[in-house]
C-alpha cells in the first residue's frame, strides 16, 4: 500500500516521465557496458553534463520568454579566451574571471537590446552574434590556444569536493539560484508570463522589453561560467571551445520539457534533459558505437523529445 502511494506521488511530478527515461537508459547501458557504473566514469559524465547544464540554464530563461539564443557556444569560447588572455597578461585570476564574465554578459546585452528594443528576430540576431563572437575569439587568439593559465585556478577547476567535481558543485549552486529566480522572484514570474502571453503581459503594465533584455544577459552570463570552467578543465583557453554547444544547451531544455513556444519549463527538467544527453553520449562510447552513429542518435533523441512535447500539448488542449 505504502509503495503505491509513493509511486503515485512520483507520477505527479512533472519530471517523472523523463526521470524514468533517464533511469531506464542508464540501466540499459549498464547491462551492455557495466563499466558505465564505475565511479570514475560517473565522475566524468557528471562533469561533462554540468558544463552543458550551466549553459542550458542560461538559455532556459530566454526560451521561457519564447526567445532563442544561438550564440551560446561562441560566448562560451569568448568568455574563456578573455579570461585566459587576462591570466596570460598577469591579471589577478579573480579579476580575469570577472573580465571573462563581463565580456560574455556584454554579448548578451547586445543580443537582448537588438531583440527587445530594435525588434530583430532573436534567431537572426543570435545567429549573427554566433559568428561575431566566434570571430572575435579568433581575432584575439589568432587560432592559438591560450595556455599560460593560473595554476591555482586550474587546480580549483579540476578539483573536487567530497568526491564531487567542482563544476558539478557550481552547477548545483546555479541550478538552485535559477530555481529561486524562476519561482520566487518577480522577474521569474514575468518571464513565464511573457512566454505565456506577451501582449497580455505588456498590457498588464510589465516592462516586457526590459525583462527580455535581462534574460539574454543572464543567458550569456551562465554560458560564460561554462566557458571559464572549460579553461580550467583543459588548462588552456581554446578558440574552438563550445562549438555546437548552443544546440546541446537548447536540446537539454527541450528534452527536459521546456516548451520552445515559451511559458513552461522546469529547472529540474532541464538538468535531467542535460543528463540524458550526457549519459547517452557516454554510453554510446562505452558500447563502442561509431562516432558517426553517435551524432545520428543524439539528433534522433532531440526529435523524439520534441514529438513527445507536441503530443503532450495536443492532449492537454
Amino acid at each position: 500500500m505504502k509503495e503505491k502511494s509513493i509511486l503515485k506521488k512520483m507520477g505527479s511530478f512533472k519530471e517523472s516521465a523523463i526521470l524514468l527515461a533517464l533511469i531506464l537508459i542508464m540501466l540499459v547501458i549498464t547491462i551492455i557496458a557495466p563499466k558505465f557504473m564505475s565511479g570514475r566514469n560517473l565522475y566524468l559524465v557528471a562533469r561533462q553534463v554540468s558544463y552543458v547544464v550551466i549553459a542550458g540554464l542560461g538559455v532556459f530563461f530566454i526560451i521561457l520568454t519564447g526567445g532563442i539564443d544561438l550564440s551560446v557556444g561562441s560566448v562560451i569560447a569568448l568568455a574563456g579566451v578573455v579570461t585566459g588572455k587576462c591570466m596570460e597578461l598577469g591579471v589577478n585570476p579573480l579579476l580575469a574571471i570577472l573580465f571573462g564574465l563581463i565580456a560574455g554578459a556584454f554579448i548578451g546585452l547586445i543580443n537582448g537590446y537588438l531583440v527587445s528594443y530594435v525588434g530583430v528576430a532573436a534567431f537572426i540576431v543570435t545567429l549573427g552574434m554566433m559568428s561575431m563572437a566566434r570571430g572575435a575569439v579568433w581575432i584575439i587568439t589568432k587560432g592559438w590556444p591560450v595556455s599560460k593559465i593560473d595554476p591555482g585556478f586550474i587546480a580549483f577547476g579540476q578539483g573536487s569536493f567530497m568526491g564531487i567535481p567542482t563544476s558539478v558543485i557550481i552547477m548545483i549552486i546555479i541550478a538552485i539560484i535559477s530555481y529561486i529566480i524562476l519561482n520566487k522572484t518577480i522577474f521569474g514570474r514575468r518571464v513565464l508570463a511573457i512566454g505565456g502571453n506577451e501582449e497580455a503581459t505588456r498590457l498588464s503594465g510589465v516592462d516586457v522589453k526590459k525583462v527580455k533584455l535581462q534574460t539574454y544577459v543572464i543567458g550569456a552570463l551562465f554560458a560564460s561560467i561554462t566557458g571559464i570552467l572549460l579553461v580550467a578543465r583543459f588548462s588552456s583557453a581554446q578558440s574552438t571551445a563550445g562549438e555546437g554547444w548552443e544546440m546541446d544547451a537548447i536540446a537539454a531544455a527541450v528534452i527536459g520539457g521546456t516548451s520552445l513556444a515559451g511559458g513552461s519549463g522546469t529547472v529540474l527538467g532541464l538538468i535531467i534533459g542535460g543528463a540524458i544527453m550526457g549519459v547517452i553520449r557516454n554510453g554510446l562510447v562505452l558500447m563502442k558505437v561509431s562516432v558517426y552513429w553517435q551524432t545520428f542518435v543524439m539528433g534522433t533523441i532531440i526529435i523524439i523529445a520534441a514529438i513527445v512535447d507536441v503530443m503532450k500539448n495536443r492532449r492537454s488542449n
Binding site: 505565456g196 502571453n197 501582449e199 497580455a200
Partner: peptide, 14 residues
Amino acid sequence: VPENRKEEAVILEM
C-alpha cells in the same frame, strides 16, 4: 480591461 480577453488580458496557463 481589454476587449479580447484571451489575446490581451489573461495568461491562460497561469
